[in-house]
Amino acid sequence: MGICIDDGDIFNSHDVVSLFTNTPIEKCLDIIKERLKNDKTLKDRTKLNTEDIIELLQFILTTTYFSFRGQIFRQIFGAAIGSPVSAIVANLFMEWLEKEAIMTAPLDCKPKYWRRYVDDVLEIIQKDTTLKLTEHLNTIDPTGSIKFTHEEEDQGKIPFLDTLIVRKEDGSVKMLVYRKKTHTDQYLNFKSQYPLHQKLGVIRTLKKNILETSDAVYKIPCKGCDKSYVGETGRQFGVRLKEHRKDSETVKDTKFTKAKRKASTSEQHKSAITDHVAQENHVINWEGASILDKDSNAVSRRIRESIQIPKVGFHILVIRIMLPAAGKNNRCNRTGLGR
């Protein structure tokens, strides 16, 4: 994450209770009206003036009707769940609230780090100030409808959205993919009636999570044969995958004479994937790359890497030579494809 946390600080998260249905509409309209008045580019984007927009917005936000058991009801407070405008209005209100909260927070509980996604907030604060900060946040909304709950880190770990944030002994921080205990690995049924863009969004999100995973043992298969590359990295998987791909495609796209091609096949490149591309002229299945295991400890991660080799298939070869000589550079590491 690129941040460090001191021994006297903790990670803490806050969450708004039922944001949409507790969003104060009148206060939102005042906030939006003020922002529109200060928007110098508004006239370039629409022929409507501020009063026109506010009138239309008020009509949309205060005329929400729904039926239940044969009766028709009107929502008299908050924003409607499912309305496209609700998310925008609620987020604008939260932008105002967080600015007020941070600006007026007492010094002893003022967050050192603050990141928000809609109604979920992650903070770094001093130990034993969580309750005081929560009480402060709960006083910002003039209607008293917006209330926060909180959760402190537990044993140096705290879930935030779909990530698990872990503080290391040196104060640095790493992120893992977080799954609740009730998680079943079941997502949208592609044959369901959800819009296509939502189904594709699930796939894109899962792919993004995989690429941002660090401390991983991974596999990259070859399209031209049944061999696969097994490797490990302490960095983000997506970053390491890009490095592999760049090196391999540099060799693949190079215009070789017959003599240079022969020389390239005997040359040892940065990774065994590049060697395989140069020697066999095969295409790597980058889209088929996957994470096999995870471990934050470098030594045990390499052990896990070796354990994964026989599980993946019979056409994988990993050679790791440990040199007995003392010194920082006493290990020669070669991980690759082969029989």
Results as ranks from 00 to 15, higher is better:
L97F: 10
A90D: 07
A79H: 03
E55V: 06
Q71S: 14
A87P: 02
A87H: 05
I76S: 08
G78F: 02
E55H: 10
I53R: 13
Q71P: 06
T62S: 12
I81V: 07
T104M: 09
S83R: 03
T63G: 00
Q71V: 06
A90H: 10
S67P: 01
S67Q: 10
V85G: 00
T104N: 13
Y65N: 01
Y65E: 06
I60S: 08
F66S: 05
D52Y: 14
I60F: 09
I76P: 00
Q71G: 08
E100R: 15
I54T: 11
D52F: 14
L97M: 15
S83D: 07
E100D: 01
G78P: 01
F73M: 01
A87T: 04
T50W: 08
E55A: 14
N91Q: 08
S86V: 02
A87V: 06
M103C: 08
T62F: 03
S83N: 11
E51D: 14
A87W: 00
I54D: 14
S67A: 13
S67G: 09
I88K: 08
A90W: 13
S67Y: 08
G70N: 09
M94E: 10
L57H: 12
I81H: 07
F68H: 06
F73P: 01
T50N: 15
E95F: 02
I53M: 11
I54P: 04
I72K: 13
K99M: 05
E95L: 00
I76H: 07
F59V: 08
I72Q: 14
A101Q: 11
I72N: 14
V85N: 01
Q58K: 12
M94H: 14
V89F: 05
T64S: 12
F77I: 01
S83G: 07
L57I: 12
E98P: 01
V85A: 04
E55Y: 11
P84K: 06
I72P: 06
I54S: 10
F59L: 13
I81W: 04
I53Q: 11
G78H: 06
S67V: 10
L61Q: 08
T62V: 09
A79F: 01
L61F: 14
G70Q: 05
M94T: 01
E55P: 00
T50R: 15
S67K: 13
L97I: 06
I60P: 00
L92S: 12
N91E: 08
L97C: 06
V85E: 09
D52I: 09
M103Y: 09
I76G: 01
Q75G: 04
E55G: 02
F93D: 02
I102H: 12
K99Q: 08
I60N: 07
M103E: 04
A80I: 00
I76W: 03
I53H: 13
T63I: 02
I53T: 09
R69F: 14
G70Y: 05
F73E: 02
I88H: 10
I60M: 11
F66Y: 15
S86G: 06
S86T: 04
G82Q: 05
A87Y: 03
A90I: 11
I72F: 13
E51V: 05
T50Q: 15
T104C: 10
A79R: 03
